[in-house]
Design a protein around this nucleic acid. Structure first.
Length: 449
DNA sequence: CTGGGGACGGGGCCC
DNA sequence: CGGGCCCCGTCCCCA
């Protein structure tokens, strides 16, 4: 074998006891040695932990005692780093930590990961593991959980119920150690909200921070999955545009919303899907997606509350964290609203054009702008018009206003008008003569779920 | 190719 | 807590 130049960790050295004079020379690849050594060391440590050998740290989780090695915990978790390095207690021989913010089962998963590199995620435990990892400041675990959830949120894909099983060991190699939180991982880390230093005490109770609902026992996706840290982002939008139905409550998903919105705009209102068979398909697909959204909502913790930051008096400000991204909001209602961008839920359909919206106000704005010609601007010359001078022009279900000059310029014969005397005549299809009927018609058009 | 404008989505926050 | 308003960013179309 030829001597290999120094390239990173993959160095070759002579075996101990062999001088350069001795023949034949035997070169040892240190990269292999390192991997084998790390693996062996981790196994030994894990074995010691299980046998409670040399364990110098006790962790109490909801009354259940876990024994571990402080140096291992120190190397794996930002939380334990802080805990073990602060004050004289951290230097004592017997170190204890108490947690009530996650369950013993969750901590078992975390501890097993620390000592083995194997993260035993399932749809049953992923949310709580992620929250615990967030609390313990283990960004790599958070990243894996995040990817796991993303993989599970494949709600835009029709009829793709096949389980995707990828073991963590297959898709990523992980070294549980001090170097675990690389800058890249930190950037990827989904949790921007970390347990604040002020709360890094040795007795953390749920009352301090209702970090998350604990009794999450439903399935995220309906099937247990192993973490796939590689896949997720583009899996969310694998459905082709043409498969989307504007009547679908889950019409679209974040990232592709506007494109799909445009797609719907290009469709004629009474589109070509007229056969009963197609309608049934659409209905079926819609039902499936609605079920998935419900399922998704059902998996959410009741409240995912975190301490966001501190006010000027150093009092923690409670915020609500989205379980699917890093976003936090002040109010639970805002979180509920935000979640629609993950579920793709669009509960507000426009009866005029079948386009669906995430919010009533968006539907109303759309309806008034597109179907009611509420904008008092001439579409052609952009001049300001009034209710009287702005003639309502009808174009399919779309209505807009044009000033008298532009009307005359284009020619009345070529423009489908709702009424030559202008704005007091609302679009006949939409609105009646008087206000009451207008409101009734509007309600009919904007059928809200 | 580019800039302007329309339509829409989403966040913050008030009522 | 829902409704609503305001604001900003993004995408797309069009001149």
């Amino acid at each position: 074998m030829d001597m290999v130049s120094d390239m990173g960790t993959n160095r070759l050295y002579r075996a101990p006891g062999e001088s350069s004079h001795q023949q034949p020379q035997r070169w040892i690849n240190t990269a292999d040695i390192t991997v084998a050594h790390q693996s062996n060391l981790l196994k030994q440590l894990n074995q010691q932990r299980r046998q409670e050998l040399f364990c110098d740290c006790s962790v109490l989780v909801e009354g259940q005692l876990f024994r571990a090695h402080r140096n291992v915990l120190f190397a794996s978790s930002g939380y334990f780093r802080m805990l073990l390095s602060q004050g004289p207690e951290g230097l004592s021989d017997a170190v204890n930590a108490t947690f009530d913010v996650f369950s013993p089962e969750t901590f078992t998963v975390i501890l097993d990961f620390i000592y083995s590199g194997q993260l035993d995620l399932s749809s049953h435990n992923v949310i709580e593991v992620m929250s615990a990892a967030s609390y313990l400041q283990m960004n790599n675990v958070i990243t894996y959980c995040k990817n796991f959830i993303k993989s599970s949120l494949d709600i835009s894909v029709k009829d793709e119920d096949s389980d995707r099983c990828l073991s963590l060991s297959e898709t990523c190699s992980f070294t549980s150690g001090a170097g675990e939180e690389t800058s890249e991982q930190q950037q990827q880390g989904p949790c921007s909200v970390s347990p604040p230093p002020a709360l890094w005490t040795r007795d953390n109770s749920r009352s301090q921070s209702s970090f998350m609902g604990k009794d999450l026992d439903q399935d995220v996706s309906g099937s247990d999955l192993k973490t796939n840290p590689v896949s997720p982002a583009n899996e969310l939008n694998t459905e082709s545009e043409d498969q989307q139905d504007p009547q679908d409550p889950l019409y679209t998903l974040p990232g592709s919303e506007r494109r799909r919105g445009r797609a719907s705009k290009r469709r004629t209102p009474n589109s070509t899907r007229s056969s009963q068979h197609e309608d049934l398909d659409i209905e079926e697909a819609r039902t499936k997606k609605a079920e998935k959204a419900e399922e998704l909502y059902a998996t959410l913790p009741p409240i995912v509350g975190v301490i966001g930051h501190f006010n000027k008096d150093s009092n923690p400000i409670m915020r609500f964290k989205c379980p699917f991204c890093t976003h936090t909001v002040k109010r639970k209602a805002d979180l509920k609203r935000h979640l629609r961008c993950h579920t793709g839920e669009r509960p507000y359909p426009c009866q005029a054009c079948n386009k669906r919206f995430t919010r009533l106000e968006h539907l109303r704005s759309h309806f008034e702008t597109i179907h009611q010609a509420r904008k008092l601007v001439c579409r052609k010359c952009k001049c300001q018009v009034t209710e009287e001078t702005g003639h309502v022009v009808c174009e399919g279900t779309r209505r807009y206003r044009m000033c008298t000059a532009c009307i005359q310029e284009v020619g009345c014969d070529t423009i489908p008008m709702d009424g030559l005397d202008g704005a007091n005549d609302e679009p006949a299809l939409l609105l009646g003569v008087d206000g009451e009927e207008e409101e009734d018609t509007k309600r009919t058009w904007m059928t809200l779920l």
